[in-house]
Simulated scan of single mutants.
Amino acid sequence: MLSKVFIILILIALIACTSGNKSEENQTVVSLQENIPEQAQALFNGKTLDNWEITNFGTQGPVRVSGGKIVIGMGDGCSGINFTEAFPKVNYEVGLDARKTSGNDFFCGLTFPVNEKFCSLIVGGWGGPVVGLSTIDGIDASENETETLMRFEKDQWYNIRLKVSESKITAWIDDELVVDFDYQNRELGIRPEVSLSRPLGICTWMTTAEIKNIWFREFSE
C-alpha cells in the first residue's frame, strides 16, 4: 500500500512540474511579443513562421522558431526569411529586436520597399561594425554617406526601427538615430545577394542571429 501511495505522489509531482514548465514557456512566448508599439501590427506570432518563408538563397543555414524567437542559423553566405504577404511601399515604420549569437558579420540585413525600389538596412556588416543603407547610387553602406560605425556585442539584444516616408529613410538602433537620408533624386538599390529578400526580408551573412518582436505600422504625411 505504501509503495502505491508513493508512486501516486510521484506521478502527481511530475504532472505538476510538466504543467508548470508549459505555463512558464507560454508566458515567455507572450512576453517576448510585448514590445510592440501602439497601433502597430505584429508580423511574427512568436510560435511559427506563418506569413514568412525561409529564403532560398542557396547558401542558407537552418532557420527555426524557438522560445518566441526566430533563429537564423549561420550559412555559407546569406541566411534568412522573407515576408510572403502584401506590404506597404511607402509611409510605414517597421521594427524588430535582433541579436548576434555567433559569427562576425551582419546579424540584421533588413530589405524593404521604397515606392517601386528596394533598399537594405545593414546592421553589423563588413566584419561587424558597419551600419548603413545598401545601396545608394550603386554604392554599399560601407562606402556611402549613410555609413555609421558601432560596436555590437554578441548575445545582446538591439532594438532596430526603420521609417520610410515620401522623401526620407530614417533608422534608429536602441533609440539612437543612425540613418537620416533624403533619397529624393538618388538611386536606391540592393545587392544581388539579397534580391530574394524582396519585398520585405531579414537576413544575416555567415552569422547566427535571433529575431523577435517584428512589427509594422503605416502613417500619413
Rank of each mutant, 00 (worst) to 15 (best):
N56W: 09
T111C: 05
P88I: 03
N21K: 04
L9C: 12
I160K: 06
R99V: 01
V179A: 05
W52K: 07
E187I: 12
G189F: 00
S167E: 12
V30A: 11
Y158D: 02
T111P: 01
A86H: 05
S142C: 04
A171E: 07
I81S: 07
L49K: 12
E25S: 06
V5Y: 08
G73W: 03
G73F: 08
K168V: 10
G138M: 01
G124I: 14
E153P: 04
L43P: 12
A16I: 14
V65L: 14
A209V: 00
K69R: 05
W205N: 05
D182V: 02
V178S: 10
D175C: 12
G124T: 06
F106L: 04
L49D: 06
T207M: 02
L32F: 13
L121W: 04
G20Y: 11
D105I: 13
K154T: 00
I8T: 04
I7E: 14
A171S: 13
V30P: 07
E53P: 06
P62G: 08
C108N: 13
F219S: 07
S120V: 01
K212G: 13
F181N: 06
M74T: 14
F216H: 05
G20Q: 08
E116R: 04
V194A: 09
E53A: 10
N115C: 01
V164D: 01
L9S: 12
F107H: 07
D155L: 01
